[in-house]
Design a protein around this nucleic acid. Structure first.
Lengths: 132, 132
DNA sequence: CTTGACCTTCCAGTGCACTGGAAGGTCGAT
DNA sequence: ATCGACCTTCCAGTGCACTGGAAGGTCAAG
């Protein structure tokens, strides 16, 4: 009984056939069965795996990091320590990004306010625009 | 009176001479003065500019986006309405990024808790790792 | 039996932000 | 005078995550 072809998997997972072949190339997806004609023949479990990959990516992990976790999972060992380490690192990076973004927002917001207070008469480049 | 050479600027700003030349190439830094020998001769204001670039980058902005904002600043003559429009767009993007980043943070924090609650016994690949 | 959608492989290109290296010029110190 | 650290330009390569396109095979529908 044949499963899904690459286009169906792409559709179902919201990616492209190109990307699926790429994932296979870099070892994120196992080599699938083939139909007599050589078409890739996927079982439904590939969708879980792609969901895992997508979630990992949404969490800011690189494909290499996701691949590490998948490799550990494929060997049947619980990668909890590994996962928590990765996630802790991610959290730290995100907190830093949030802080910097908030700071930048403040800077720009202040400038924007400078740019609006006063009509064109008082809005000279020297007074307003170069304080960005 | 001569200012800083590229190596000094690199050192002072925590980047490399290579990167500074690259920034110049892509228009993030203005063409600096040159010494008689052709060495780049930077004034101290370049450090402010590099600090701004670094903060923008730390906040997850691309060099192209940072370049847009810098271009506004450089065109000190830009009409204020135009400036506020661009800044509003920037703020909207930053607010969206902040929201997404906050969401991502929450997601990862939840995942991390899932990964730690439970001892190795319950931490089987099937039970835990697929929550990632 | 042809059309068109789908599949195959392979190789090359994209965009971002650098980074490396060759080949050569400049400068202060020994 | 020459050494070494610095500078110059130019071109090419890296890593990530795809993406495009050529050249050809497969298959159900009309």
């Amino acid at each position: 009984m044949s499963g899904m072809r690459i286009g169906e998997v792409a559709q179902a997972s919201g990616t492209t056939a190109k990307t699926l072949r790429y994932y296979e190339d870099v070892g994120l997806l196992p080599d699938p069965d083939r139909s007599p004609a050589g078409y890739r023949d996927y079982g439904p479990e590939v969708l879980d795996r792609l969901h895992f990959i997508r979630r990992g990516q949404a969490a800011g992990l690189t494909l290499a990091q996701i691949g590490q976790v998948l490799a550990i999972r494929d060997r049947g060992q619980a990668p909890c320590q590994h996962v928590t380490d990765l996630l802790d690192t991610r959290l730290a990076v995100i907190d830093r990004q949030l802080a910097e973004l908030a700071q930048l927002r403040t800077t720009i917001a202040i400038l924007r306010e400078h740019a609006t207070t006063g009509d064109p008469a008082t809005c000279s480049p020297e007074d307003v625009c170069r304080y960005l």
